[in-house]
Amino acid sequence: MDIEELKTRVAAGEQLEPWMDLPEEYISAAKRMMEFHMTSEVVGPVHEFWWVPKAPSLEAKMIFAAKSQDEVGHGLGLMTVCEDLTGRSRASYIEEMFDGPPRFMNVFHYPWDEWADPVIVSWLIDGAEIERQTTLLKTSYGPYARAMKKIVKEEGFHYHCGRFLADRMVHAGAEPKRQMQDGLVRWWPRILAMFGPPDSKSTHGETLMSFGLKLSENEALRQSYLTKFVPRILEMGLEVPDNNLGFDEDTQVWSYTEPDWEEFRGLLRGGSPVGADLQKALRESRLLNNWMVTKDAA
């Protein structure tokens, strides 16, 4: 199948399967996109499992454990899809994760030093992912779309989990509420950046759109997020820490403080504050249990 034929079929709504004669460019684009998503879902839980033990009530503990468990499952689901597309083994993917430079979402590159961090991530970032991930139900690569069904079902719970924890925190007392507000100051720029630069600045994004792998423009997702979440943040009794934030009724467009795209890109080029720690934790748990790997394991 050549690329033009692929684009035509995809535009007609066809979903592609690994046994079709897929062009190299498509496989390479699908692989890169899915591996990034998968790696995010494998390293993200390391942060979460540093905090599950510290949840301050039994309810928070159980809810946060369930949410974190889901993320591990998302990593597992996406891992199997990547393995089938590339022919690589599980072992080789796991090992790459703790050796190579880590490629995953910006939000996981920052330290989660206070309880407000996992709370905000669960409330505002899992919430942000819901819309993007819902669009992936129609991604052109069939196995990816199928894996997304379970993931999307679970993301809704994550947002509710986050909202529950946020609500608890803002009502727990003056100090916890202040910490949530401070946390928002830390996380707001990262949340805005999370959607990626507007697609006009990204050739890669255009390719993914033309292949039907990606179905929403970055800016459209960011705008939709602001429409949904700015009121929710205000309802929670918090302020959105962005002096440039405003909604133009005529154009129906939000303005906001432009993220630092240099910092964003730098995270993937060795500028990651916690990338090495995450890799170390994954490497250690793998090596500790190396003896378990049976003789015929790849």
């Binding site: 599950v52 159980m62 974190s68 468990q69 591990v72 891992m79 793998r286």
Partner: peptide, 28 residues
């Protein structure tokens, strides 16, 4: 507590998912 905490760091993704379920059960 121990199971829900170590479930991030167990031997495989499959086992980790199960460890967390069992830990949540015990907390329940």
């Amino acid at each position: 507590h121990v199971l829900t905490s170590v479930s991030g760091f167990g031997p495989s993704l499959e086992i980790n998912v199960a460890l967390s379920s069992m830990g949540q059960d015990e907390l329940g």
